[in-house]
Amino acid sequence: MKANEKAKRVDRVMTWIFVAVAGFFILLLIAFALLVIGRGIAGFEPYMLSFTRDGIGNQLFNTVYLVVLALLFSVPLGIATGVYLAEYAKPGKVTHFLSICIETLSSLPSIVVGLFGYLVFIVMVGAQWNLVSGALAVSILNLPLIATTTKDAMESMPKGYRMGSMGLGATHWQTIRRVLLPACMPRILTGIILAAGRVFGEAAALLYTAGMSTDINWSNWDITSPTCPLNPFRPGETLALHIWASRTEAIRPDAAQIANFSSAVLLILVFAFSIGARVLGRRMERKLAGGK
């Protein structure tokens, strides 16, 4: 019975430790978020939101533009790869190798992907820093997430969907296109939003692709001009890179305030996307389930 007493005491102590660690961590996370957002608000001046050299408006625009461009590449390719793995791939060496490739891509350090992008899209093409090559580099990072989400979603579909559609005389592709993909949409969309959230914060892969300068003239709408906002082949510094730059190449007196504010904006954006993906995913699941 003495052993029991001791065991129970240890059990109580350990339980307290677990609760304490979990509590500590939640507090740390909350403190972190509050610190970032609070400091951003504290140092806020209206000019910081302006779309000029002093504000971060241009960087914000570049970030959003880059996300859109990156998704333009990674979404079709990612979904197609997922569909291939779930529907067309025959079990065998090639398929196995493809899954290993996706795993490799997903664990690549982003700086390595950035270097690859730099080499192929900048050096080999002979271009200057530009948004498209940044978007391409980031797509490589995004691709595995979208592909695996699609594959998992397709594979979790009930067999009946496929049978039902094929039984009506639909071809394989028609079944994928009209039955399976729509049914998978909530999960795929959640994956895409999460992927987009990651692009917001990516910096290392953009260092040598999208570049660290931005020069936009908001009255110039000639898309071939390097200062036109919509020209995808102009250099485009994103918010995340701006934070990095204000640490190393800070020459302005308000660099710290700007970086604080940028961090806050970035954090809120990322949180909004992450929570948005969750809410949207849940709502769409419910809608599909309710329609049954």
């Binding site: 996370l29 972190f32 970032v36 999460l194 959230g197 990651r198 917001f200 914060g201 990516e202 910096a203 290392a204 995340a240 890179l241 934070i243 990095w244 640490r247 970086a259 604080n260 961090s263 970035l266 954090l267 990322v270 949180f271 996307f273 992450s274 929570i275």
Partner: peptide, 12 residues
């Protein structure tokens, strides 16, 4: 939520 926080923010 915190998996998604950009690394530059941690760095900053």
């Amino acid at each position: 939520l915190f998996v998604g926080i950009p690394s530059v923010i941690y760095g900053w």
